[in-house]
Amino acid sequence: MTAEEARAAVRRHVGVEPGRTYSLGGAVVVSLSGGGQVVAKRGAGVNATLAEAAGLRWLGESGDVPVPGVHGADGEWIVLDFVAPGAPSVEAAEEFGRGLAALHLRGAPAFGSPPPGGPADAWIGLAPMRAEPRADWAEFYARDRIEPYVRDAVRQGLFTTGQAAVFDDVCARLPELAAAPEPPARLHGDAWSGNVHWAADGRAWLIDPAAHGGHRETDLAMLRLFGTPLLDHILGAYVEAARDAGSPLSDGWTDRVPLHQLFPLLVHTVLFGGGYARQALTAADAALRAR
């Protein structure tokens, strides 16, 4: 990815002449001739930018949680509003928790469904992710969020077939291990701490989604995975808002955190190996012991 390629993407999708650029992680921040800045990113693979654009539009349509505006996307690039960074605050954390509860309750057509206009073959970070409607959460979570990544990890030699059997046990027991049935939620899908962007406007924004219809406990479990700042304030406000909306979290939701962390841990296993494989095995054992 070069600065000139990023400028060309801005010309296509914003329609103004780009100015100075600088790198920001895996993206490029581009100044616009008329003022303001945008972010240009190249996708991880086929459909990645289209999936991200559809996800941001879906998550942002209600305004419950702020997300970057999408200027345009093609098969290779996406151009977004630049959101200046800031510092975490209790006020922003609690507002974010309330907004996330409302966003989840906007719902989705089915478990596993992609955002409107989004591709079925999507991405989570650098890993492929299938977005396909399923009859219920247990079927969706087993077939599209556990089994494909376990198979890939076994092929890579990261799990033995004996170790992989624990994931078979989890999948077989998912109807028992899951909470009481509830409608599919509108998920960000990759809500780890790095995708909660504390902004200069005093709010917490969601970025880089892997949006789909799923179980709201999955987003909450991801927030716990890598130490989101002010998490207790986020979750406290979330729990209160969900209860006030008449859709409280099911009893024992904190005990199910390992179950819902299996998906991101397995994704990290196939991408990075090492300690993530051990963490995934530990989470599977904990999920089986939770009931």
Results as ranks from 00 to 15, higher is better:
5 E>V: 10
13 H>C: 03
20 R>P: 09
22 Y>E: 13
27 A>L: 09
36 G>D: 12
42 R>M: 10
43 G>F: 10
55 G>N: 11
57 R>H: 14
59 L>I: 08
61 E>L: 13
61 E>I: 06
62 S>L: 04
64 D>E: 13
64 D>A: 14
64 D>Y: 07
67 V>N: 02
67 V>M: 07
68 P>E: 10
69 G>F: 08
71 H>A: 00
71 H>G: 02
80 L>T: 07
86 G>H: 00
91 E>T: 15
92 A>I: 05
93 A>L: 05
98 R>F: 03
99 G>E: 12
99 G>C: 06
100 L>N: 09
100 L>P: 10
102 A>E: 15
108 A>G: 09
108 A>C: 14
110 A>Q: 05
113 S>H: 11
113 S>M: 07
118 G>I: 13
121 D>R: 13
126 L>T: 11
128 P>E: 15
130 R>F: 07
138 A>P: 11
144 D>G: 06
145 R>T: 10
146 I>P: 12
148 P>V: 01
148 P>A: 04
148 P>C: 01
149 Y>C: 12
152 D>S: 04
160 T>I: 04
163 Q>C: 01
167 F>Y: 13
168 D>S: 08
169 D>I: 00
170 V>M: 12
173 R>P: 03
176 E>C: 01
176 E>K: 03
185 A>T: 01
186 R>C: 10
189 G>F: 02
189 G>P: 06
191 A>L: 15
192 W>T: 02
193 S>I: 01
198 W>G: 03
201 D>M: 11
202 G>Q: 02
203 R>M: 12
206 L>Q: 03
207 I>D: 08
207 I>R: 00
207 I>W: 02
210 A>R: 04
213 G>M: 03
215 H>T: 00
217 E>K: 05
226 F>I: 11
230 L>Y: 03
242 A>G: 13
246 G>R: 07
251 D>I: 01
251 D>P: 04
254 T>P: 05
255 D>C: 04
257 V>L: 06
257 V>Q: 04
258 P>L: 05
261 Q>P: 03
271 L>Y: 12
272 F>D: 15
272 F>I: 15
273 G>L: 00
276 Y>T: 01
278 R>M: 10
280 A>F: 10
282 T>R: 08
284 A>P: 11
289 R>I: 04
